[in-house]
């Protein structure tokens, strides 16, 4: 059951990230999608990939995007 919920979370947060007006929120939603993907990898019997994805997808990528947004502008005009 959990995997279906995770699939829905991944797709929904991906769509939501792209329709946000606030780019910082979009960065956080990207992290949601990446984190859910990490849990999904764990369910798919790949714990090593899950660890990497948890660090990269849920922490590093959103932080990079947030840093870039901080240095540029927050609104999507």
């Amino acid at each position: 059951m959990l995997e279906f919920v995770l699939c829905i979370i991944i797709v929904l947060s991906a769509i939501l990230a792209l329709i946000q007006k606030d780019l910082l929120k979009a960065a956080i939603l990207t992290g949601f999608s990446g984190g859910a993907l990490a849990v999904l990898f764990q369910i798919l019997l790949a714990p090593d990939v899950a660890l990497t994805q948890a660090i990269v997808g849920a922490a590093i990528v959103p932080v990079f995007i947030a840093l870039a947004v901080q240095k540029t502008q927050r609104e999507d005009s």
Binding site: A14, L23, T30, F41, L44, G57, I65, V69, T72
Partner: peptide, 27 residues
């Protein structure tokens, strides 16, 4: 999408999709 940051977010989604597909092969 016109905004460059959103374009880059989209590109990261393509990569995640490809990764998920390949992990699903091994499952």
């Amino acid at each position: 999408v016109d905004n460059i940051i959103k374009k880059i977010i989209g590109i990261s989604f393509i990569e995640e999709g490809a990764n998920l597909f390949i992990v699903a092969i091994g499952y």
